[in-house]
């Protein structure tokens, strides 16, 4: 797939930034002329990945969350990257209802929501180094009126 546009965003791991992050990615994805449903799917998946970085990766030690967005002809790749504590067992963490923080009333559905709302997801994590969540969403009737430069 040929990348036609790219953006990078970095922000402090504060919960106030969850809405900011998903709105920015949605605005970037809007160049592909997605449906409202596709936009809602992307916003939700981004919100889940960013929330994981804030709650789990950085926990009590704030750091920066990076988002890289890349557009291709009929979709968007979103990478959510943290340099936090990492996930010990990615497979276990991705199980529905799994949560390491039940005391916070976490549902353990974050990765399931990302998997459901996006078309592809890959999670790479190293203990002590951080986590990178890469998600792909295909935009069914992508219709860009502006010719890419």
């Amino acid at each position: 797939m040929k990348i036609t546009n790219e953006m990078r965003l970095e922000f402090l791991s504060k919960s106030q930034n969850e809405a900011f992050a998903r709105v920015v990615v949605a605005a970037f994805a809007a160049q592909l002329d997605p449906t409202l449903e596709e936009i809602a799917d992307i916003k939700t998946a981004v919100s889940e990945a960013v929330t994981n970085a804030i709650i789990h990766a950085y926990d009590q030690n704030p750091g920066y969350v990076e988002i890289i967005g890349q557009l291709f002809d009929n979709g968007i790749i979103v990478q959510v990257i943290d340099r936090g504590k990492g996930i010990k067992d990615v497979k276990e963490a991705m199980q529905p209802l799994y949560t390491s923080k039940p005391e916070l009333e976490r549902s353990g559905m974050g990765f399931t929501v990302m998997e459901t709302f996006m078309d592809e997801i890959e999670v790479i994590s190293s203990l002590g180094e951080g986590t990178k969540v890469t998600m792909v969403k295909y935009i069914k009737n992508s219709n860009r009126t502006e010719k890419p430069r």
Binding site: E48, T51, L104, E105, R106, M109, T112
Partner: peptide
């Protein structure tokens, strides 16, 4: 207008 999985915990609780 928007809800993610954090809302699930609120309603279950």
């Amino acid at each position: 207008k928007f809800m993610d999985s954090s809302g699930i915990g609120v309603f279950i609780g």
